[in-house]
Amino acid sequence: MEEEVIKKFLYVNRKAPYGTIYALESLEVVLIGAAFDQDVSLAFIDDGVYQLKKDQQTSVDSGIGVKDFSRTYRALEGYDVEKLYVDRKSMEERGLSEDDLLVDVQVFDEAQMAELMEQQDVVLSF
């Protein structure tokens, strides 16, 4: 058995949900990756912040005919993925505040976010 090495993984999410497949793909990779017991963080920058907006209403049967995967972010805690960071400027310039988000996050300024990126072993961009 190889010795287990825990690496720091950061998923950087910069796209709004639904318009492209990036957000959902990222989330699926996070869920699959969670099986490997790594040190996982998620960053939400630019339109990526919109992924966490409360009250998304979709269903396979009505509306846009797509699963409401925003609810899956609330399952991440059960997968031991608990480090979610939101870029303050991206959030504020979109007129959003933490109260508009469906999960607990830490709001980071540029310096904190840049430092977070520097600390990683692997950065995955979506």
Partner: peptide, 8 residues
């Protein structure tokens, strides 16, 4: 570089 961030 240790890490690469792709700004897509």
């Amino acid at each position: 570089n240790k890490t690469v961030q792709a700004w897509l």
